[in-house]
Write a protein that binds this DNA or RNA. Structure first.
Lengths: 243, 243
DNA sequence: ACGTATTTGTTCGTATGTATC
DNA sequence: GGATACATACGAACAAATACG
């Protein structure tokens, strides 16, 4: 048992430090999935804190889904579910129009950045290529209901930010590049807890989930022109797919 | 300050009882949105418990989004966000096939019950009318990914449970009632945290959100025949709407 | 501007209950 | 039944953020 020292009166509470420490040990593989963590009294001695402090940290890991705490048995590293990739047998399919996206919203940020692998793959680019990000806040009745990050290949849409501001409509801006029409190619829907920034902007508690929808729009030739990730406050609005 | 008595060693922990009590006071409107709750020491005296016990209960309400706790200021009833009903400007539309639903799954429960208002409205019945509930667990690679509650009007589909068990397919069972074909009318997608039962069945932590999809299927005359509420483990599978 | 009271946040200590091994 | 391990509850003290005179 190596005693791990924490920084006391550092401004960061001990349970947060412990949670972060254990989080990293799990993510790094030092603590293998399925393995049993040391007992609470053991961890308390290791970190030199009270058992309550350890319990507070463990409850955070449980909420994150990293461990499962089982009374009388112990605390175990959960088998990650990231290794599962949804196959053809686990999805719904259909055609989605592009209604609703015209409403646009308030522009939060607009900048260039290097495409992360996920964005690059969606847009058919190489990771690191220049992309434009427009981040819009969607308000309904003066209440924020969703944030959407729109990514575009920069080489094809130089100056998109300015053209967007003229009409305040993505569709209009794209038209000025000769994109007469485009269509939604794929939409993936998922749920997660909001990061602190999204929670703040959406004025929602971090414990309340958001619906995350990712979709790719392609032009009439089938080339990807836009990748969107939207986060909608759970309970505040509902994505609706209607016939 | 009216002292509220709790049931000690009733099998339900004190903090749960307090959380439920305050939850109801908020939902009933006894505690108005924006109003300040009594201080923690005050609540502790009122319920005759330690301040820690009150804090545990308050943290639950905070995670539920019912209150916001602010250091140095107090605890306040949050303005509810349930008063927003998504309108035409806040939805996506499109056609959704019914692929993926054939995969069916393992039957968890099958019973009759009185239609709750929500179910009744979806099926075009009066609240309290007899409905059949089939609850299916959907497995992929031996891992549970979603639970779906399927509601049917009982008067139209007598003995549906048995017919379902013969083919293990809802579509097949409906065919035996002369339903040649039917279609998805509307799908609403949302996110929430799972109840303890769903979390247990899906083998997921309660802190991790689920995607909740509600949809109504109608026959070729447009009459509702099935109302489905599915809960999918966030991160484990993705609903996919594809062109 | 400052000090003080109020209110929530963190940490420790202790005791007892409940589930599992 | 006994030992182990997590769950609940109480009490005390101090820290940190806020409100107020």
């Amino acid at each position: 048992m190596t005693k791990t020292t924490l920084e006391r009166r550092s401004g960061i509470s001990l349970w947060r430090q412990i949670a972060q420490h254990l989080h990293e040990e799990i993510k790094s593989g030092e603590l293998q999935p399925g393995s049993k963590l040391p007992t609470e009294p053991h961890l308390a001695r290791r970190f030199g804190v009270n058992r309550h402090t350890v319990r507070r940290a463990l409850s955070v890991l449980q909420e994150e889904g990293l461990v499962s705490i089982e009374q009388g048995r112990g605390t175990f590293v959960r088998t990650p579910n990231a290794d599962y990739h949804p196959g053809e047998d686990a999805h719904l399919s259909g055609n989605i129009g592009r209604e609703g996206r015209e409403a646009g919203g308030e522009l939060i940020t607009s900048r260039h950045l290097a495409a992360e692998p996920k964005v690059a793959a969606a847009l058919g680019l190489r990771p690191g290529e220049d992309v434009i990000l427009l981040e819009l806040l969607h308000l309904v009745d003066h209440r924020p209901v969703s944030i959407a990050s729109h990514y575009f290949p920069a080489h094809r849409f130089k100056g998109l930010e300015k053209r967007f501001l003229k009409s305040h409509s993505i569709t209009q801006a794209l038209k000025s590049y000769g994109i007469a029409d485009y269509m939604r190619k794929r939409t993936k829907v998922n749920a997660s807890l909001p990061n602190s920034e999204d929670a703040r902007v959406l004025k929602m508690p971090r414990g309340q989930p958001v619906v995350v929808a990712e979709n790719v729009n392609v032009d009439l030739d089938g080339k990807p022109i836009e990748f969107t990730i939207s986060r909608s406050a759970g309970g505040r609005m509902q994505l609706m797919f209607e016939r």
